[in-house]
């Protein structure tokens, strides 16, 4: 194709075609290498993520039974779910758990990260590792430990309270306290990563900003309010949204600690999906799956928005 013009071209143009041809050649080679390198990822995601998602969408809009062909029922399951008080209870439990967990994590992480920033290298290193350590404990083990800590005989919490003459209380069997009792291990498990991310954000703020603020006569609190928080806005937003999404999806803690009880007081959305999934009554699986999809639409949308926000902001900042 380029050969037809090649004859008319002067000697000076020839290298250009040659370069173009070589670039095309390496481009083709890139294609093959690239496809080989992303093939495992694309295949695995297709089989274990994208196909199951499509299949879930299909199952949530078709009525399946053994003796009939699948019948398209449109949004019928969705209306059914939205009509179910247990669904709204689960949403409310998830939201309340997030409200108990996320602000506490953010506030504590902010406080601890500010502290670490002022420490010497060795002490800072020690505290960073210490605060991260709970992160590696599994939800199951955290559940077991905190269940034990809440016990009335031999439990640490009642032991301490008893020492100052209060209690003993029951925690996990009391519908009013069970959810806050689950929020505590959730905070304990989640605080490490948030603190480290917050600290990284704080260390990115140039020290000159603080010096300038100090020259203007800003005290410690004023510096936090007018320098740290505004410049940390994106990190805070990111941590708020990801923390929120994680907290709403909490499942291991209520599954092991309370099984969702007492009287559904700790039935988080994912635990609800899980228990419905194991329910043998007809349409329970379709129901569970539709709940999962509704949650996916809402949470997926939120995380996509936040992802855009963080990324676009990065592009603006350079």
């Amino acid at each position: 194709m380029s050969g037809t013009h090649g004859g008319a071209a002067s000697a000076g143009v020839m290298p250009v075609t040659a370069v173009r041809r070589r670039r095309l050649g390496s481009h083709l080679r890139d294609n093959r290498t690239a496809y080989l390198m992303i093939a495992p990822m694309v295949i695995l995601l297709s089989v274990f993520v994208i196909y199951p998602l499509g299949y879930a969408l299909y199952l949530s809009t078709f009525e399946i039974s053994f003796y009939k062909d699948p019948v398209f029922v449109g949004p019928q399951f969705y209306w059914y779910v939205l009509d179910s008080p247990r669904f709204w209870n689960a949403i409310s439990v998830g939201l309340r758990l997030a409200v108990m967990v996320v602000p506490v994590i953010l506030a504590l992480a902010f406080l601890i990260a500010s502290l670490i920033k002022t420490l010497g290298r060795r002490l800072a290193g020690f505290l960073k590792t210490t605060i991260y350590l709970p992160t590696v404990v599994s939800g199951v083990v955290a559940s077991v430990v905190f269940t034990f800590m809440y016990r009335s005989d031999g439990g640490l919490v009642n032991g301490f309270l008893g020492a100052v003459g209060i209690g003993p209380f029951t925690y996990l069997s009391n519908p009013a306290i069970a959810l806050p009792a689950i929020a505590v291990p959730a905070i304990w498990l989640g605080i490490g990563v948030s603190t480290l991310i917050m600290l990284a954000g704080m260390l990115d703020i140039p020290e000159t900003y603080y010096e300038a603020a100090e020259l203007e006569g800003a005290g410690f609190l004023a510096q936090i309010r007018y320098v740290t928080i505004p410049l940390l806005k994106n990190v805070l937003l990111f941590l708020f949204v990801t923390g929120f999404i994680l907290a709403v999806q909490q499942v291991d803690l209520p599954l092991v600690m309370t099984g969702g009880g007492p009287v559904d007081a700790t039935m988080t959305p994912n635990l609800f999906i899980f228990t419905q999934f194991k329910d043998p009554t007809p349409y329970a699986t379709s129901f569970s799956l539709t709940v999962a999809l509704i949650l996916f639409f809402v949470l997926g949308l939120i995380s996509m928005l936040i992802f855009r926000l963080v990324r676009s902001d990065k592009a603006v900042d350079g």
């Binding site: 890139d30 694309v42 994208i50 879930a56 999806q249 799956l289 997926g300």
Partner: peptide
């Protein structure tokens, strides 16, 4: 690093699971 056909589409495909919570596809998986 590589430049290849359908890169943008394949990128979108590979990044999409970031927005799919595990429980949304628990049952069908």
């Amino acid at each position: 690093r590589l430049d290849f056909r359908f890169k943008r589409a394949l990128w979108a495909f590979c990044i999409l699971p970031l927005f799919i919570p595990a429980f949304a596809i628990l049952m069908t998986s």
